[in-house]
């Protein structure tokens, strides 16, 4: 292991990690937003739109992110839409993540017994109040494990962004291997970088999950 090499190129990894994290954060936040809207559309079976949402979810979950990125990066310019690498990455991650988040939230929403809604209504709350005060808090708690698994999954998926020429962690590692043939060091740093990003996130989420469970759910 060439320590000198590692210390010399460490700043490259730090830069790449920042970019990866920035894109992942934006992508995940918009995934949550898209997913939340889609789950509501499916849960309340809003006519017509819920069919479109179902198609989107199936399409997104059953195609690899790499192919989705290729479509955005190489396909769209053919019809005159040209996106930067960053935009492609964010749109691609949102397209993929939206469907996973939608299903995570929906599982939470559907786990709430019907009687909860009815007893909310029976104390005179409006449909929205029932959703806001009764359904949503419970659904979020129930979908938390699926939600956190998705966040980790989406961050890991960022490793394919190099395919659309985004200078992320994977891109830097491949670059260094290509230039200096220092495969061991480059990949070692890559693994470390992902672990440093993901381990704290996993730990934080498991603490949150435990906290929520203790907050007392289920009869």
């Amino acid at each position: 292991m060439d320590i000198q090499f590692i210390s010399k190129y460490l700043p490259l990894y730090v830069e790449a990690a920042k970019l990866t994290l920035t894109i992942a954060t934006i992508g995940i936040i918009s995934s949550i937003f898209v997913g939340f809207c889609c789950s509501l559309v499916r849960y309340y079976k809003i006519p017509f739109i819920h069919k479109i949402v179902s198609i989107y979810i199936e399409l997104s979950r059953n195609t690899p992110l790499l192919i989705q990125l290729f479509f955005l990066y190489f396909g769209l310019p053919k019809i005159g839409i040209r996106l930067s690498s960053e935009s492609c990455a964010i749109v691609g991650l949102t397209f993929l993540g939206g469907s996973y988040m939608a299903e995570a939230f929906r599982s939470g929403l559907e786990a709430i017994p019907k009687i909860q809604r009815e007893s909310g209504l029976s104390i005179g709350l409006t449909k929205f109040q029932v959703f806001w005060h009764i359904i949503l808090p419970q659904a979020v708690t129930i979908s938390m494990p699926a939600f956190s698994a998705n966040v980790v999954f989406l961050i890991k998926e960022t490793s394919v962004f190099s395919a659309v020429a985004l200078a992320d962690l994977m891109y830097v590692a491949k670059d260094l291997i290509g230039l200096y043939y220092k495969t061991d060091e480059a990949l070692f740093m890559l693994v470390c970088a992902y672990l440093i990003i993901l381990l704290p996130i996993s730990i934080i989420f498991s603490i949150i999950e435990r906290k929520l469970r203790y907050a007392g759910f289920g009869n």
Binding site: I115, Q116, S119, G120, I134, Q138, A215, G216, F217
Partner: peptide, 8 residues
């Protein structure tokens, strides 16, 4: 009939 309190 079923206990319908809000668990949260």
């Amino acid at each position: 009939q079923s206990y319908d309190l809000f668990p949260h």
